[in-house]
């Protein structure tokens, strides 16, 4: 007798262990591969995204390999409407980015003692079509690593 296959769920999720949030079920669409990791964290490639809380501008970038490794990020345009970057052809090619509409941008946040800053010169760009991303280094840009977002 043949047992009928059970219908697959519409979305696949992955169990991700975290030290901050316990075990999370992360949909495939929210998983990304940072092809070179992040500067200083080159060995960590598999990450996932999830919102901090409803209405919060903060989005966690959590390692799927190291439960303790997580970054806070924001959409830089939420704070700096004038922010503009030029994605180099080689960066776009590396993550297979063809259409700008497929690009998702986030910048890493540092929670300091007295303010909160974000790094506009090293944004993370992700191709939402294939989940590949990288931290790009903006050369000849006016931006730095610590732009305050705590008084915006």
């Amino acid at each position: 007798m043949v047992v009928e296959a059970i219908c697959e769920p519409a979305t696949f999720t992955t169990r991700v262990e975290t030290t901050r949030f316990g075990v999370l079920e992360i949909p495939e669409a929210d998983q990304v591969t940072l092809i070179h990791g992040l500067l200083g964290f080159e060995r960590h490639r598999a990450f996932c995204f999830f919102a901090h809380a409803p209405g919060s501008p903060f989005i966690w970038l959590q390692s799927m390999e190291d439960p303790a490794l997580a970054f806070v990020t924001v959409n830089p345009f939420d704070f700096f409407a004038e922010y503009d970057i030029e994605i180099s052809e080689s960066d776009a090619a590396e993550i297979g980015l063809v259409h700008v509409r497929d690009a998702m941008l986030c910048t890493l946040v540092t929670i300091n003692d007295h303010d909160v800053t974000t790094n506009l010169v090293g944004p993370v760009i992700i191709n939402t079509e294939n989940g590949r991303g990288k931290q790009v280094v903006l050369t000849n840009s006016p931006y730095g690593t610590r732009h305050s977002i705590s008084r915006v």
């Binding site: 540092t110 010169v121 705590s150």
Partner: peptide, 24 residues
């Protein structure tokens, strides 16, 4: 960028919910 990434990698669990309440 590398050293800022390292600083950013240790965020507190509780994030400021209202950025405007933070000291300048």
């Amino acid at each position: 960028i590398r050293s800022e990434n390292v600083r950013a990698a240790a965020p507190p669990d509780e994030l400021p919910t209202d950025l405007k309440r933070l000291p300048p």
